Computed example of a mutant assay.
Amino acid sequence: MSIFALCLPLGSATAAVTDNMFRTSNTSWYCHGASLSDPYYCQTDNAELSVYLQSSVDAGTKASVRAALTGSYDATHLNTGEVSSPVTSGSGETDVIYQQDSTGLPSSTLGRTWCNDATDIERCDQHYIRFREGTGIDRMAACHETGHAVGLTHGAQAFLALGQTDPRLACMVAAHDHHNKYLGDNNSDNINATY
């Protein structure tokens, strides 16, 4: 009599229903230094996620960003920390710089994320996130744009692709939905598998 056992390495099991971590076979870009008018994002360069909130960010948006970081991202393998002044060049750049200004944003866009300094075709040393001025950015929008800064995509860019409003994408749904203000299991699993 033979006994067969299925052995999986520790940490290999995941509950992710789809891989929506950049770069998937459904993303059409590589990581490169971009701009607000060329808004491409990719993975951050390491698990130590330093963030800076510029003085242009209003108090409500700062609270939403901090709630998203502590309520969702701190529960992953990422180690988030807010810095009092940013490093914008050289080694050890601040990973995410948040700003609030409507300049350059399409009228229907609440926020946009772009890589400022690519380290290779998948990773970025510094992302910028711009939120629309005067819109009352909530935790969902903060969670969503921060997700792009660590590499999370929308459903259409995931592999296997999901609908843009599939609830399993949680805060990464493409349409603004105040109920999806948390990272969710799928996104958390993809972050943990990457970092």
Rank of each mutant, 00 (worst) to 15 (best):
L69C: 08
N79Y: 03
G90V: 03
L49E: 09
G60Q: 15
V87G: 11
Y73E: 08
T76H: 03
D74V: 08
R66P: 13
E48Y: 12
V51T: 15
A63F: 08
S85H: 08
A47D: 13
T61R: 03
T61M: 05
S64I: 13
S72D: 08
Q54T: 15
Y52E: 05
Q54R: 15
S72N: 07
L69G: 07
N46F: 01
A47P: 01
S50L: 04
H77L: 14
V87I: 11
S64E: 11
Y52H: 10
D74Y: 03
S55L: 07
D45I: 14
A67V: 10
E48P: 00
N79K: 13
K62Q: 12
H77A: 15
L69E: 07
P86L: 11
Y52W: 11
Y73Q: 03
G90L: 05
S50D: 05
V65W: 03
N79H: 10
T94M: 02
L69A: 04
N79Q: 11
A67H: 06
L53M: 01
T70G: 09
T88N: 13
R66V: 13
V51Q: 12
G92N: 05
N79M: 05
T70Q: 10
T80I: 02
A63C: 12
L78F: 05
L53G: 06
A68K: 07
N46L: 10
D45V: 14
E82S: 11
T88D: 12
D45R: 12
N79R: 12
A59I: 13
A68W: 05
Q54F: 11
T76D: 01
S50V: 04
D95C: 00
A63M: 09
T76K: 01
E48W: 04
S50T: 15
S64D: 07
H77N: 15
L49C: 03
S91Q: 01
A67W: 04
T61P: 05
L49T: 04
D45Y: 11
D95N: 11
P86Q: 13
T61C: 02
P86N: 13
